[in-house]
Design a protein around this nucleic acid. Structure first.
Length: 487
DNA sequence: ATGTCC
């Protein structure tokens, strides 16, 4: 492909460390410049097509300040994964490409008061128990048989519905971004097909890079914030990384069709068909938005149900009560979602549609949407590693509002296709290698392990260092996997 | 990511 011969260094202009501009002349009709937040070394790994995607988004109507991408940026559908863009609520647009297919893919972290040495001797049994209790894999079905009414509950009330249904406690909801649900969801815009796919999957992990992982804290970078987050060295934590399954995928697919028509109807010029969108206040855009919120809420309900089964699994293995094991929710973040938020733009506060696609909200200390428990330090920002690699806990930092619409990165980007990974690695040997490093893995098939081998992802530590140095999120702690369940 | 192509 011709793109591979283009020099990335000729496409960007360095503004300061970790901060690069994609000038308005990169492609015709850019309304604002692009911004790419990467280190010198990460820059060389960015595909030219990713730069083009950041520039393409800059041509969309009503875009504010600049079209940006986080240090884990890579090619996505229309918008780059790692992309953040905010649009005016009147002059701007809403685009499914700016959210992605896995609506509200996200991460939550459960604390325990168990120590690494308490868990290591039981890790195989615990990982087996988690793998048994939380269905994983493509097309996997839930242990929970949702009725239509219960599905509506998940679509409209997210984690709150799940807690009311007996999956968790009230405090869980308070420790989710947006209290585990977004207002304005309307199931009238969710197709029968999306319901049909979503109904049996409510309470499933999914596949790909999604996982359920038992970890321990091995390093604290910021004692004060770690203390506010209830984290200390040697402590065991559980991380859940999953999304809205077939429901979100179908909702995205359905509305992409409608919005492709809307592009013509409203005469919007887009440089890439994958940037299908409609004017923010149009019927088409609002219908997508209301359906997207249903999928976002479904994902929060999904992670909440998985949390409940995680707690039950620990109870069974350790023979202790969840409260006794201190299994409270630290936080739950969305990294694929569009939201109405207030931001300061050119010196005045205004409401915008912020699209985060493979980017985590990272609101700083003092922001009213940060839960009271963390208000003095900033919201927890959870950055999952890939299978067998460290994950990071950060907190939203003071410059995020000015620099990145209150956003940070979301994880390690893939550097090798699934097909390539399956040729390069063998599941069984990857598994043996991980077990030699003290990491137990349970997956539906060895090919899943090959596709997700540690070597197919960029290092998340390099990505995390960029957002830390930029002052948009600060490093708090690092966690190391002990046991992983995957689909 | 995804009933990994209706």
């Amino acid at each position: 492909m011709e793109g591979e011969h283009r020099d990335i260094r000729c496409m960007v202009r360095k503004l300061s460390d970790n901060n690069w501009e994609i000038p308005k002349g990169h492609i015709p009709n850019m309304r604002v410049p692009g911004r790419l937040f990467v280190s010198e070394s990460l820059l060389d790994g960015i595909e030219p097509g990713t730069i083009d995607q950041i520039a393409n988004v800059a041509t969309l109507p009503g875009i504010q300040k600049y079209s940006m991408a986080m240090p884990d940026a890579h090619l996505g559908y229309g918008f780059a994964i790692g992309g953040v863009a905010a649009f005016d609520t009147e002059e701007g647009i809403i685009s499914p490409g700016g959210v992605g297919f896995d609506i509200n893919c996200g991460v939550r972290l459960i604390r325990t008061n168990l120590r690494k040495e308490d868990v290591v001797p039981e890790i195989k049994r615990l990982t087996d128990e988690l793998f048994t209790n939380v269905p994983a894999g493509v097309g996997s079905k839930s242990r929970f048989r949702a009725s239509d009414q219960e599905l509506d509950g998940a679509f409209l009330e997210g984690a709150k519905w799940a807690v009311d249904a007996g999956y968790g406690v009230e405090a869980d909801v308070e420790h989710c971004e947006g209290n585990g649900y977004l207002e304005g969801a309307d199931t009238a815009h969710v197709s029968t097909k999306a319901r049909k796919r979503g109904k049996p999957q409510l309470g499933t992990l999914g596949s790909g890079n999604h996982f359920l992982e038992v970890q321990y804290v091995d390093e604290i970078y910021d004692r004060e914030v770690a203390s506010a987050f209830g984290l200390e060295e040697g402590q065991v934590t559980v991380m859940i990384h999953c999304g809205s399954r077939g429901a979100g995928h179908q909702i995205c697919t359905d509305h992409l069709k409608e919005l492709s028509q809307a592009v013509k109807k409203y005469g919007i010029e887009i440089p890439d068909k994958q940037l299908a969108c409609a004017p923010a206040q149009s019927r088409e855009a609002q219908n997508y938005f209301k359906a997207m919120l249903c999928a976002a809420n479904y994902a929060w309900a999904n992670r909440q149900m998985i949390t409940h089964w995680t707690r039950e699994s620990f109870e069974k293995v350790f023979g202790r009560d969840v409260d006794d094991m201190g299994m409270s929710l630290l936080y739950d973040v969305a990294h694929n979602v569009a939201k109405l938020e207030d931001h300061n733009i050119e010196g005045r506060k205004k409401e915008v549609y912020v699209h985060r696609k493979g980017a985590t909200r990272a609101f700083p200390a003092g922001h009213p949407e940060v839960p009271a428990a963390y208000r003095d330090v900033g919201q927890p920002v959870l950055i999952p590693g890939s299978m067998g690699t460290p994950s990071f806990i950060l907190c939203g930092a003071k410059d995020s509002m000015d620099v990145s619409f209150g956003s940070a990165c979301h994880g390690a980007g893939r550097v090798m296709s699934r097909a390539h990974a399956k040729k390069e690695f063998h599941g069984q040997s990857v598994k043996e290698n991980l077990e030699a490093h003290g990491i137990t893995v349970r997956a539906t098939h060895p090919s899943v392990i090959a596709e997700e081998a540690p070597g197919v992802y960029k290092s998340s530590s390099e990505v995390v260092n960029v957002v830390h140095e930029l002052g948009i999120a600060r490093k708090v702690a690092r966690v190391i996997p002990l046991g992983v369940a995957k689909g």
